[in-house]
Design a protein around this nucleic acid. Structure first.
Lengths: 249, 249
DNA sequence: CAATTTATTGCAATATTTTGCAGTTTAACA
DNA sequence: TGTTAAACTGCAAAATATTGCAATAAATTG
């Protein structure tokens, strides 16, 4: 393994977990702790992370402290992303909605994957363009200020002209009875159009969002084909979904 | 095996695996490591990959989290931006092409300004959404990898349905005889459509780009209404433009 | 076409970088 | 304050980089 590669891996680990232990990395890439220590020292000098006793932590984490909850949710999202990526195959056309879980998914897409991605989300497009083998197609329209997602007629029209193999539908609220729901009507319209434009709908969600609902409905639970959570598919919380014939990951 | 063949092979390996080892390539194509090293050095100089100790890694991989690339001659661009902003009035509809000068313009837009901005550029949209009183409308389409601008039929269609008050047309080459020119045909098509979609065309350009031209033509000099440079409007370089009835700023 | 230049490639000598190890020092924590 | 894990130092082996050079192939020129 190249040194630079190792350094990238360390940075990525820090980004996902906010901290790394020298010993973990050493074991992971099978080099001595000394080497990892030197790598981290260099990254520290490059101001890419903060070296601490026993390992390193992310710069952002150190300066303004992220609430504990947030840290763990990044790890959960990363796990969900890794699971969801297993659904992707070369040559597919994929539609990404917005949301932080989908953002993590976009970040962690392997560079070797050759797919075409449609997205109305600025943040996700920013990540996708970094992947050399991913063709990115921006869905245009008025940018909703808070979610940074293109909404409105233009965007929905563009969606009506396409059919994706897969849609990663991020969501804030999912509930057995109420289905997928949102509080912003413009976003609801977009998401409805996205579901219509896809053969298969995948919902990557953190388990804490299960059994919550908002004002406006996007779709029924049955409209979801695959549910990806950070939990084990055998977890009790998910069994009702399984009974409704939704694949779990 | 030809040298260029080898270089293509190396690039391809990097594209797929995100890294190559000198020794692997040397064995694969049966040349000495010295030769491979020289090939990789050239590719590095061409900025096609990043040479590292023991091999090379892909640029995208390396720049995992470096969103902001340093802008060349930022002071001049900032001055141009400040001048160009004087052309804006509340309530206007403005079209932004890509380019670093336009990016600087987007960054420096005052928060008090209430305008509607259309842009096919990811980087510029990123800046514009930060301005609370700016409504941003993303022009969708296939994202060109290097320029990060939406191009193609969808984007051009969207432009054909609109009329902006003003268009900030960034450019790499401007010349009295050849007009505005570009080397990428897809971008040329977009820029043509943008000019057609605007009542008034403003070209913010660094003076060093004056009197240079590329392969493909966007428009004639006369199609430009206002030329904004970092120079004093009385500067000798600009007088020919004044004679052609172009406003200087 | 012959002569000359230029580009490409491999090799050898030397320099530099990377890495792991051992010994010592420093910092964390109960 | 003593114990332990981690950090630092210097060092040597291995891998990689650099440089100059010579042999050969390819292109250019008169």
């Amino acid at each position: 393994m190249l040194k630079e590669e190792r350094k990238q891996l360390i940075l990525n680990e820090v980004r996902i977990h906010n901290r790394v232990l020298l010993t973990d990395i050493a074991e992971l890439v099978d080099v001595s702790v000394d080497t990892v220590r030197r790598d981290i020292k260099e990254l520290h000098d490059e101001k890419k992370l903060k070296k601490v006793h026993g390992g390193a932590i992310s710069l952002g984490f150190y300066h303004y402290d992220v609430p504990e909850k947030e840290v763990y949710s990044i790890e959960k999202k990363s796990l969900i992303a890794k699971k969801a990526i297993r659904l992707l195959k070369n040559g597919q056309v994929v539609l990404f909605s917005g949301g932080t879980t989908n953002l993590e998914l976009a970040k962690e897409l392997p560079h070797s994957l050759t797919i075409t991605c449609f997205t109305p989300s600025l943040a996700i497009a920013n990540q996708l363009v970094k992947k050399h083998n991913v063709e990115v197609i921006l869905i245009g329209g008025k940018l909703s200020k808070d979610s940074q997602i293109a909404v409105g007629g233009t965007a929905i029209n563009m969606l009506s002209d396409m059919k994706a193999d897969l849609c990663f539908m991020g969501t804030n609220s999912i509930d057995l009875e109420h289905g997928l729901t949102e509080f912003d009507w413009e976003i609801v319209e977009m998401k409805k159009a996205m579901i219509k434009a896809s053969k298969k709908v995948v919902a990557p969600v953190i388990s804490e969002k299960i059994a919550s609902f908002q004002r406006y409905k996007i779709c029924n639970i049955e409209d979801i084909d695959v549910l990806v959570t950070e939990l084990d598919p055998a977890d009790g919380v998910l069994q009702k979904f399984k009974e409704m014939n939704i694949s779990l990951l």
